[in-house]
Design a protein around this nucleic acid. Structure first.
Lengths: 281, 281
DNA sequence: CGCGGTCTTGAGCGCCCTCAATCGACGTGG
DNA sequence: CCACGTCGATTGAGGGCGCTCAAGACCGCG
């Protein structure tokens, strides 16, 4: 009776995570202002003025480094304003018995704690999956709070990122509720590829996949073992190839067919105005 | 190979739905201004001034009736501004093979097409599950667009409703990704009860459940058959009782224990200010 | 009374789960 | 340089949750 397969007898997992969280974040010296992926993502949807680009570059001079496993923000707390420059983080919720569900991932160009009106999504636990380089975006937040015409591009870009995140959450619900393990995995990989491409992190059909299978399975609502077998199967079917933190899509067409994938990335009109995603912040 | 259990060989379902959508919405004569559930829901979080209450009541004089199965708004289109007075609707997405995932439900007091900044959630297909009475809320939308101090209560209430809907969506993800059929069902019923109570539709432990098991299963990511067996099991366990469109919770404590339920409804501080959900619209 | 929709129940099975062990890669300390 | 511990990926075995198919019961309605 009662609780059917409550899953994952993983007290171990819990303690490991707790230990990771204990490590304090490091602060690093300034770095040369590379043309960061963050800027690429932001300007992918809404065109940024040269002023705005300069502003972002300037922000990026003062980086902060968050080790893998550290928590950006705990559940229920408003996250400090940060813009991710590189690395990957996830939004998640844990159940009391150790089960975990990941809502989505954050990458370069994504912001947390920036919304003027907080969403519930901004108030769940957010954890760095890899080491994350980010910058304090409090200034950005205040700039955006001023609703004058300046920085309209930045405002649009950040609003688009928020909207895209929410759109992905809807896809996530469909995946979890109505798709099989193969479909979920295929769909997720295509979505991931899309994001990496926009950020300029992808190389043709190859893109980085820093997530362990444990993390991946907690996102896709599968067990580690079954996710592994699903990936193995897709390799054997010559759909994908994985090595050393990279994934290569061998047959994108078939993969899309399997899971009925259609990108949620906003299509940009000929005049440079985004059709569906860009709105006020 | 390829698509594992693609599920539900239900071409029938599709055609039935298509037929329902064909029926045009009816327009009914005015009705006496009952103290509608909508008003109850809106004032549950943010206190409304007498002016605001009068405004809502006035809006409610001109009702529109939408038959069960009709679509408020198609996918990708912005929905017309409406405030639901009674009845139930759902946000959903269909897969090409007929599978369907329901994102959530709308009840009295919920608004569609009212957001000044559209969310992806507002752009999915929205369908009336039962007959829905609603009112044109275009006026409301314009009133809210004026960011002066007046109608701050209404703005807060509607913003809270939006936030609550998003919070429920997160719970939905956890249910679908990491909970068993029993847990999902228990959790959903408790959430539903909570909403009915706030709306004043519940009677102690009894509350209306107008959803068919088909609809319920499409929300919970289960097959109809398995949902049925799950409900049967919960009845046999003396957890719930169901008859004629009503559910009675027999053992709320045990039900909460099963699924680790905790309400996302905003707790209201002693001074009447909502702690977490009320923000600007 | 026939009929369509919904709910129920039985049977069979397969997707996906858990448990458990192994292997490779990597970093650490002796 | 090698033994060792750890983490992640992999694989086998077994089983149960939840699926599909199918048929019958129930019920409101014209």
């Amino acid at each position: 009776m009662g609780v059917p397969y409550a899953g994952y007898s993983e007290a171990a997992r819990q303690s490991i995570r707790a230990e990771r969280l204990a490590r304090p974040p490091l602060r690093r010296p300034q770095r040369p202002p590379a043309d960061v992926a963050a800027l690429k993502v932001l300007s992918a949807v809404a065109p940024l003025s040269e002023d705005e680009r300069a502003l972002v570059r300037k922000l990026c001079l003062y980086r902060e480094s968050i080790p893998a496993g550290a928590e950006f923000a705990r559940e229920g707390e408003a996250a400090p304003a940060r813009l991710i420059v590189s690395g990957w983080a996830c939004r998640q919720q844990s159940l009391p018995d150790g089960r975990r569900q990941i809502f989505g991932f954050l990458m370069a160009g994504d912001a947390i704690g920036l919304g003027l009106r907080p969403r519930p999504l901004d108030e769940v636990s957010t954890v760095a999956v890899t080491r994350v380089e980010c910058v304090d975006a409090l200034m950005l937040r205040e700039i955006l709070a001023v609703q004058d015409g300046r920085h309209a591009g930045l405002r649009n870009a950040l609003a688009a990122a928020r909207r895209y995140e929410e759109a992905c959450l809807l896809d996530h619900v469909v995946r979890l509720g109505r798709q099989s393990a193969h479909e979920r995995t295929a769909h997720f990989l295509l979505e991931w590829r899309q994001r990496c491409r926009v950020a300029g992190l992808a190389d043709a059909e190859r893109f980085p996949m820093p997530l362990t299978q444990e993390v991946l399975s907690d996102a896709l609502g599968l067990s580690i073992v079954h996710l592994n077998r699903t990936l193995q199967h897709m390799k054997r079917e010559r759909l994908i190839e994985m090595k050393r933190g990279w994934v290569e899509i061998l047959d994108a067409y078939r993969l899309k067919f399997i899971c009925d994938y259609q990108s949620r990335w906003p299509t940009v009109g000929g005049d440079g105005s985004s059709v569906s995603l860009v709105r006020e912040f």
